[in-house]
Design a protein around this nucleic acid. Structure first.
Lengths: 168, 168
DNA sequence: TCCATACCCTTGGAAGTCCTAGTATATTGC
DNA sequence: GCAATATACTAGGACTTCCAAGGGTATGGA
């Protein structure tokens, strides 16, 4: 989306913050902006790999979650909670995956309010193939050193816990 | 959007990866997923703070970028490059900021293809206020220790550079 | 038992992102 | 000087996200 810039725009933002007397929060501002940008880059790579499969990241995540479910099926509200997205986003993703024949909706046996989503065999195959591609093209080539990966997991794990993601 | 989960869903995903024989990429997969989720949390906090100002993060970033421009005006393509978003996203943001009276479009004096965007006085005031709020409510309370901030800046800076964001 | 409350999912709307294509203006090469 | 190429912005469409609101189903207390 553009050739490399001559200077790091986030480093420049940090300097601007300091120049305006906000030096006390300039560093965390820069770190947060860097997280935003890194996410953008990673999401772009992921979507590029998934595009040939007709998948987006949101749909891939749901597919993978289902592939790990013991019974092969999950209530929609469970999926929403585990993926940490709004229930309407799950509705949307399921609509499209269902149209593509990768998942199926079925009524919950005892709770009439609940809808179960289940992988079709095609969906299971698709999940395997897409995961193999992502492992090879993105996760296996992240560019992060092993030490940095562990450090990221620790720091971001603490952050997510403090933000109330999980109690553990 | 949901109460805390009993277990960290990303740690669980990592275990699932390992169980399926993808142990060699399980750690970077988890780190990348953690970056995604952290970005989601941070963006949520930012948007909550900006909402009373009638701003979204995309519009705030543009407003702030303009407030740091020497001349107070920038060509749209420059803004697109510095914010590292698609040109159509800038068009969209400018449309709405213009409707709100915070920026104005003007033709470039010598290049007929180019449109300049300029802060209005109201836009300048808004940028100051919104930045003060974000500094107080988000950047000043990030929850990251100083050491972790420096580490994040280094690791993510290397990543962004390797991804071609800047040459420096 | 029955009504109020809580929960689950879906619809419709607003916002952001990107892509593709189209129009207008510059620049470059012959 | 003029045609071919490159650049700048915008229009329309697909996608995701969230919020607000609504209809259907469970559950629990009077």
């Amino acid at each position: 989306m553009g050739s490399p810039l001559p200077r790091d725009p986030i480093a420049e933002a940090r300097q601007n913050w300091e120049r305006h007397g906000w030096g006390d929060v300039a560093a965390p501002m820069a770190a947060i902006t860097a997280i935003m940008r890194t996410q953008q880059i990673l999401l772009g790579r992921i979507e590029t790999v998934l595009k040939p499969f007709g998948l987006t990241f949101a749909r891939y995540e749901l597919l993978t979650l289902l592939s790990f479910a013991r019974s092969g099926a999950l209530p929609m509200n469970k999926a929403s909670a585990l993926l940490q997205v709004h229930p309407t986003s799950v509705t949307n993703a399921v609509d499209r995956l269902e149209q593509a024949g990768l998942v199926a909706r079925s009524p919950h046996p005892t709770d009439g309010r609940t809808t179960l989503i289940e992988l079709t065999s095609g969906g299971r195959t698709m999940a395997k193939r897409a995961t193999a591609a992502l492992n090879a093209e993105v996760f296996g080539k992240s560019g992060f050193a092993d030490d940095d990966v562990e450090h990221l997991l620790r720091v971001l794990g603490n952050f997510r816990k403090a933000a109330g993601d999980f109690t553990d």
